[in-house]
Structures are given as C-alpha cells and as structure tokens.
Design a binder for these strands. Structure first.
Length: 472
RNA sequence: GCCCCCGUCGUCUAGCCAGGUUAGGACACCGCCCUUUCAAGGCGGCGGCAUGGGUUCAAGUCCCGUCGGGGGCGCCA
C-alpha cells in the first residue's frame, strides 16, 4: 500500500512550491490507490504558529487536496522523538554534545575555514569531563555519529544520487532544549506512519543521505525518495516573497479558480504528453507518474496561469463556478441580489464566462447586468456615442416597445430592419445600444444581452441613456 | 570555497532511458480570416537542442570536458 505525506512547517503561508509538492503527493496517492497523510511539522516553536497551520489547511482545501489522515502535529509527539534519540545514544550511534553555540562559533572562526564540520570534540570526552559537564548542569544536545562510507540511493526522479559520508557532519538530532531537529522527527514519523514514498522539493536532496543513515541506525527500511525540481522566479532564483505574491491563497484572492491553479501547478515539471489544455483532478491523477517528472527547474510564469484561468472559466458550467464566485459577488455588494435570482445570474454567467479572465472581472461584469445605475465608461462613449446615436436609439426604442416579445432573434431582426429603413449600417444602432445597455465599449453579442435583460429592463436602460447621455 | 543536481524556442513542454522525424505542441508576441464590439475559433509568422570534443554510417538522444543555472553546507524545516 502506497502511503505518502505532505509535511509543511507552519512558519509561513502555503506558497506555490509547497502547493505543488502537496499536489504531486496527492496525485501519486490517487494514482496508486494509496493514502495521503498530512503532517504539520511545528517543532520550531519560535517560528510556527497556529494561524499559519490554519492557513495551510485552508489552501489545501481550496485546491481540493483532501487528506486521508491527519493533520498530525509533531509538537504533540515530542516524547517519541526524545525516546528515539536516547535509544541511539544508548546504542552508541549518537552522542551527547555539550558544546555551546558560542564555543562552536569560536572554533569555526579559529579554523579559518568558511565551512566547518563539527569536530567531534564531545565524542571524545573523557568520563570525568562528561561527569563534570553533567554536574555543572550544562545543556546537552544529541548528535548523530555519522559512520564512514558512502551513502547512495535511487531517486525516483533524479536517478542515482551518491554522497561520501565524510561530507556530512555529525548533525544534531535533539536540541539542547529537548526539541527534535527536522532530521530526527521526519525520519521517526515517516517510519512510524509507514510512509512508502517521500516526494518533496529538491532543496531536500542533501538531507536525504543523512536521513538514510538515520534509518539504518534505527534498523529501519528507508522509504523511496523523489525530489521535485524547484520552482524558480523570473530571475531564476528559488521562488520567494521577493517575487511578488507566491501564496496560493493570494491567487484565489485574485480570482483564479482552483482547477486552473491545480492544472498550472501540475504542469510545472510534469506533462501528460498530450495536446490538451487542462484536466479534471481525476484525469490528472489517472495520467500522473513520477517517471514523467522532468529534472530541470521550471520558471513560474503568470501569463500561462492567466490564460489557463480564462480557459477553465470558459469550460466550467455556471453551477461549477458559482461557489468560487460568491466571495467576489459579495465584494461587489451584489451577493444577496445574485442569490435571489440565481437562475438568471447563471444565464448571465454563461453569457460572459468566455470573456472573463478571472472571477474578479466576472463579478464586476455581473454587477452591470444586475444593477442599471452603472457609470458609462469614457471609453465606450468616445468610441460608440457618435453622431446620430441618440436619434437611432430613440427610434429603436419605439420599435422594441412595439414588439410582443423581445428575444435575441426578434431584437436582431427588428434592429436590422430599422437600420435598412434608416439607410445606415446595423453597427450604427448596435453600438449605441451596447452603450445604453451596459455602458461599456465591449460586451457579449448584444442581442443575447437584450434577451437576458428582458424587454422591460432594455427599455428602462435605453430611456436612461436617452435621458443622461449628451446629444450628439 | 566544498558537495549535490540540472541544461530543447523568451516561458511551460514533447522527443532522450531502447541514436535515423523538415525537432512537435502550448503561452506570450506579430499578421490575416471570421465578425455588431470584445473574446473564442481558424490560418500563418517569429523563435530552440548552451558549448567543445569523442563514440557511430548516423547524436537533441550515448560518453567526457567546459560554460551556464539551481540547491545544500544551522541546536531552521
């Protein structure tokens, strides 16, 4: 049984890199019929916060990456890590280190080297020295005794990775305050939670040999490892705050739909190798495989995300869009009205979705359909409110008022007939009508707009334009 | 500095593992078509195997060097 996990540390919001890691784990679990475990690595009490844990869960829910087990908080498992560290000390695979940060810094400086490995001073302490330190009540950390040799593993994405053990220093397992370091807690938990595949960012490559050594020291079988290429910013540096918004929830705020975000993330470093723009979550899971993950670092490109978003919005039904749209309707102050005439708003959504890049824009457009007190855009007036506009609109109003029913077909036929009668091109009537109905330079095909607004509302809006817009 | 990883259009990528294609698609950009506007759609254009060597009848694909990029080197995770 495949078991994978996503193990964020709640020291910040969920950024796009973390979200992609979570997504790939989720996809792999779904593909393999396995389990996806969520574990919160909050052992750094200084930097972790409850709010951030909550934020991360929110983000995962938005992306629909539901977890099968958890969230498991490491901060509640401290006794386990301590016991495990003690076990290694007892077995001579780890040792107490009484060096203070200052002493280490001092020796590092004295060595004159930029990089300095721990010198194992405390490994060679005499019995008397140890006893003295203990009597003095000096705080002690537990360091792992790195054995000689070479550590190799077969990365599911990168292939064989090999590191000489003498490149690795005796890293700390248990800090002197009794909290575990990442290496200890991650290995203990992954083993206890029976994780079979560790899928994480490439920034962990160098940690892997250390952790494998730990598995061996405990006598445990290590899981398989897969390291995902790091997502880079436009400057080709690891994506961070300096590249603008990288929090996934910030994209939700900007009107990106969840499915677009997922598809965008999924297709960074991975490709199903088909000519298809986007997939449902299920389709992604079906097609996913670690072998198809590329090794090189992709660059985060907002253009592609924006395009994908408009594609997804166009493809989704009004009903699918609705739940994600609600917060934006609320922002525009039209949530209640929209809910009251939901079916009608659905018709509007179907009309405008193909031209909406994001939900922000969509909500703004919907407002013009719901409310007829909009401002006429300067742009629209300049472009379409020209000579004869008012006169044409006046005559069009008469025609429309005389019609029994005003649907797209009759609206178009009667407008074209009127244009012919007046000896002008239909566009001379169409554009002023567009300005009158929505106050914007561009819109969906105007006769569809007429139909969805309905006769009464159309006449109302024409009257308003005749009343308020300047004579030309 | 040391260690590890990577290198196909500006960007995301297919092709590489099992050498033989005019190196394919998508985004962006630029034209044209369609058209009541804007999108969408259709057609076309621009643009790439980092580089040097080797193996081979044949190299984007295999090997080595160089260059370039990234990551790591914490009592952070």
């Amino acid at each position: 049984m495949v078991r994978v996990r996503f193990a964020p540390s709640p020291t910040g919001y969920l950024h796009v890199g973390g979200a992609r890691t979570a997504l790939f784990n989720w996809l792999f679990a779904r593909k393999m019929g396995g389990k996806f475990v969520l574990r919160i690595e909050d052992t750094d009490l200084e930097r972790s916060s409850q709010e951030m844990s909550f934020e991360i869960l929110q983000a995962l829910r938005w992306l629909r990456l539901e977890w099968d087990e958890g969230p498991i908080y490491q901060s509640r498992r401290l006794v386990i890590y301590r016991r495990m560290a003690e076990r290694l000390v007892r077995e001579g695979k780890a040792y107490y280190c009484y060096c203070t940060k200052e002493e280490i810094e001092e020796r590092r400086r004295a060595s004159g080297k930029k990089v300095w490995k721990y010198d194992r001073r405390c490994l060679h302490l005499s019995q008397e020295e140890k006893e003295r330190f203990e009597r003095e009540g000096r705080p002690r950390a537990v360091r792992f005794l790195v054995p000689p040799g070479v550590t190799e593993y077969q990365d599911l994405i990168l292939g064989r990775v090999s590191v000489k053990n003498d490149e690795i220093e005796d890293f700390v397992l248990l800090k002197s305050d009794g909290y575990p370091t990442y290496h200890l807690s991650v290995v203990v938990d992954d083993h206890l939670m029976k994780i079979t595949h560790v899928i994480r960012g490439a920034d962990h490559i160098a940690n892997t040999p250390k952790q494998i050594l730990l598995y061996r020291a405990f006598g445990w079988e290590p899981p398989l490892f897969a390291h995902l290429p790091l997502i880079l910013g436009k400057d080709r540096k690891k994506l961070s705050k300096r590249h603008g918004e990288t929090s996934v929830l910030a994209f939700r705020e900007r009107g990106i739909v969840s499915l677009a975000m997922v598809n965008f993330l999924a297709q960074l470093s991975w490709s199903p190798g088909e000519d298809k723009d986007f997939y449902t979550m299920e389709e992604l899971a079906e097609r996913f495989s670690l072998e198809k993950v590329r090794k090189s670092n992709p660059i985060f490109d907002l253009d592609k995300l924006a395009w994908l978003n408009s594609k997804v919005i166009s493809a989704l039904s009004a009903g699918d869009i609705w739940p994600e749209l609600l917060p934006f309707l609320e922002r525009e102050g039209i949530k209640e009205e929209s809910e009251a005439k939901k079916d009608w708003v659905f018709r509007v959504i179907e009309l405008i979705k193909e031209r909406s890049r994001d939900l922000l824009e969509m909500a703004r457009k919907i407002k013009r359909y719901i409310r007829n007190d909009f401002d006429y855009s300067e742009d629209a007036l300049r472009k379409h409110w020209k000579e004869g506009a008012k006169d044409g609109l006046r005559r069009l109003r008469q025609v429309y008022a005389g019609l029994d029913s005003l649907d797209a077909a009759s609206a178009e036929a009667s407008l074209r007939a009127l244009a012919e009668e007046m000896g002008v091109k239909a566009a001379r009537l169409i554009h002023p009508l567009r300005v009158a109905l929505l106050g914007e330079r561009v819109s969906p095909p105007i006769f569809h707009v007429v139909e969805v607004l309905g006769k009464e509302e159309v006449l109302l809006r024409i009257d308003r334009a005749l009343r308020e817009l300047p004579d030309v």
